Amino acid sequence: MNGSFDILIVGIGGQGTVLASNVLGEACIREGRPVRSAETHGMAQRGGSVESHVRIDGRYGSLIAPGCADLLIAFDLLEALRYRHYLPEGGRLVTNRRFVTPTSVYMQKQTVPDEAEILAALGDLDLTCIDAAVIASEAGSPLSQNIVMLGGASRFMPLAAETLLAAVRACVPPKTVAINERAFSLGRDAAGRC
């Protein structure tokens, strides 16, 4: 592969973006590929925006410039809209169908766009939508939504699915390995049907 493959993972505090970036880093190490990553946390403890930059095979800094990401993985539909400018026109977005309405919307009496409006605003992208909450529950835990999303996005990464699954096993707590393996596989299958 020539040049880097840049992945931006976005969500809100508590959704597991940092764990997801750790899984990608572990997969890169297992494949012997250089990787750089960085996280930025905006009031993550209060449900604020969190972004994780992962650059595979890159030679330069850890942060991805707007308009340059190869893949955007959004754990929240509103965060997909907030960070879509990191993708070039026609860029690849894998997003969760669900979103958490920010507290500021209630405090400031703002209106929230519905799913159809958000998806219309993302219409110029190569879009894969996954209902991670339903799939994670099927896998055995709603807390595995981040691994569902990684499974779905794995179809569009330059890393082997087997390597990513081994990295999931290495990064999640031992008692949750079986649930997370299932979450990854179900997410990958869901993206294949989109």
Rank of each mutant, 00 (worst) to 15 (best):
R188Y: 09
L159T: 00
V177A: 15
A167W: 00
E162Y: 05
C171Y: 12
E181Q: 13
A153P: 10
R169F: 01
R169Y: 03
L159R: 10
A183Y: 00
L159K: 07
M157K: 12
V177E: 12
L186R: 12
S144K: 05
A153V: 05
V177Y: 08
R155K: 13
A183R: 07
E138S: 14
N180F: 13
R155Y: 15
S154Q: 04
S185D: 13
L143W: 07
S144T: 08
V177D: 13
L143E: 10
P174E: 04
E181I: 02
A167Y: 01
A167H: 02
G140T: 08
V172A: 06
A190P: 03
P142T: 03
A160F: 14
A170N: 03
N146K: 09
T163E: 03
A166N: 10
M149T: 01
N180V: 05
L165D: 11
N146A: 09
T176R: 15
N146D: 01
E162M: 05
F184H: 04
Q145C: 06
L164K: 08
R155E: 15
P142R: 15
R182A: 11
L159N: 10
A166L: 06
A139E: 13
A167L: 01
S141R: 08
E138M: 10
Q145L: 05
M149N: 02
C171F: 08
S144F: 05
G151W: 00
A139D: 01
E138Q: 11
A153L: 10
S144C: 04
D189W: 07
V177H: 04
G187A: 07
S141N: 10
S185R: 15
D189Q: 14
M157V: 02
N180I: 01
N146T: 00
S144H: 10
S154M: 00
V168N: 04
G152A: 11
P173M: 14
A153E: 08
T176S: 15
T163D: 02
R155C: 13
E181W: 01
Q145V: 07
I147T: 04
